Amino acid sequence: MANFTLVTEFLLEVFAETWELRILLSVLFLLVYLGSLLGNLTIIIAATIDQTLNTPMYFFLRNLSILDMGYASVTVPNACINSFFDHRNISMGGCAAQIFLFFFCACVEIQFLTIMAQDRYVAICKPLLYPIIMNHQFCGQMTVASLLSSLILASVHTFKTFQLSFCHSNIVPQFFCDIPSLLRLSCSDTFINQLLLLLSAIGLSGSCFTFIAISYVRILSTVLKVPVKGERGKAFSTCVPHIIVVCVFLSSGAYAYLRPPAISDIMKDMTLSVFYTIVPPFLNPIIYSLRNKQIKKAVKKVIFRIFHR
């Protein structure tokens, strides 16, 4: 406990050891971050201003974009600043806040993606029942349920993580504070923490992934029955990229959070974490919106209004 009382802050890893590579990666990730902000902000503005996009699909798309802006902002800006200025310190409170916000956003993200898969399934497979199933009340309830369940999960995991004693080291083997990295630094028994992660993965991520997979299998089976090839291609071009992003997001996150603490390689861990921290907020706007004619039309309307005032 003497060592534990000395740990008042943690030291985060930077993107690379050499200054040149560190700056290159920092600039690259910063550009991706700014791109994700721009893409998501465009969706939010377009879906808010254009009244024709006042449907459940765009309601959740707007919510996902708001979430993705926060999700990327929790880790990327701080990591880029750390790499630029070689400032690696983060306080215990700052680390706890980062863990809570990151875990909260990740849990809401997977639930929103699941609801959006449900929305697409109903729209394509049960179009006549769409207004009844995906009504405003249902959308509101699902949003609140996602936020509350994620709030509870993030609070429990953050609380249990910072109940541990940290006396092995204060160097976090990651460019942001996350639970697996802190578990490796702890000299306490982390069995309960690992069990909680496993239960969360099975209960939330596992069930969400199963639901998404079933939804898209049904969508694709319905689409294959459509005689028009052009319509089939449109549906495939929307479904397949989304499935890929969900698989990358969940598989990389599951590997990082569920593997034994003893198995660790800093560069491998940092590379892997990019796939569940930086990639989804950047790709979601492209997959869901920039290929969508209604969004493109709404964006053109917004730009026309701005430049013709």
Rank of each mutant, 00 (worst) to 15 (best):
L224P: 06
S181H: 06
T238H: 09
K225Y: 08
G206R: 00
F191Q: 08
V172L: 06
S237T: 14
A213K: 01
L195G: 07
S186I: 10
G206F: 03
I179F: 07
L196E: 08
L195Y: 13
S207K: 03
S237L: 14
S188Q: 06
A235R: 11
I243F: 15
V223P: 03
V228Y: 14
S237G: 08
Q194L: 11
S215P: 00
Y216D: 00
F249Q: 11
P173C: 05
V217R: 06
D178C: 13
I243T: 05
K225R: 14
V172F: 02
S221Y: 05
V246G: 00
D189K: 03
F211I: 01
L199A: 14
L220P: 09
R184T: 09
R218I: 00
D178I: 04
L196W: 14
V246P: 01
S215T: 02
C208D: 01
I214L: 09
F209P: 00
F249I: 05
L196R: 02
S207I: 07
S251T: 11
K234P: 03
S215W: 00
P241G: 13
Q194A: 04
L183F: 07
V172S: 03
F175C: 02
V226F: 14
F209W: 02
S200P: 04
A213L: 04
G206V: 03
S215E: 00
T190I: 15
I202K: 05
S181N: 04
A235L: 10
C187Q: 06
V172E: 03
G230H: 15
D189W: 04
L183Y: 06
S181T: 02
C187I: 09
S252L: 10
G233K: 15
F236E: 11
L250G: 09
S188E: 05
F211C: 01
I202S: 07
V245K: 03
I171C: 07
I202D: 06
C187N: 08
P227I: 05
A235H: 15
V245G: 01
T190C: 04
I244P: 04
G230K: 14
V245E: 08
V217L: 07
L182C: 01
R218N: 12
V226C: 13
L197Q: 13
G203N: 10
T222A: 10
S252Q: 11
I214T: 03
H242S: 13
G230D: 10
I244G: 09
F191T: 12
V217I: 06
C208F: 03
V248M: 13
S221W: 07
I192Q: 07
K225H: 12
L198Y: 10
G230R: 14
L199T: 11
V240W: 11
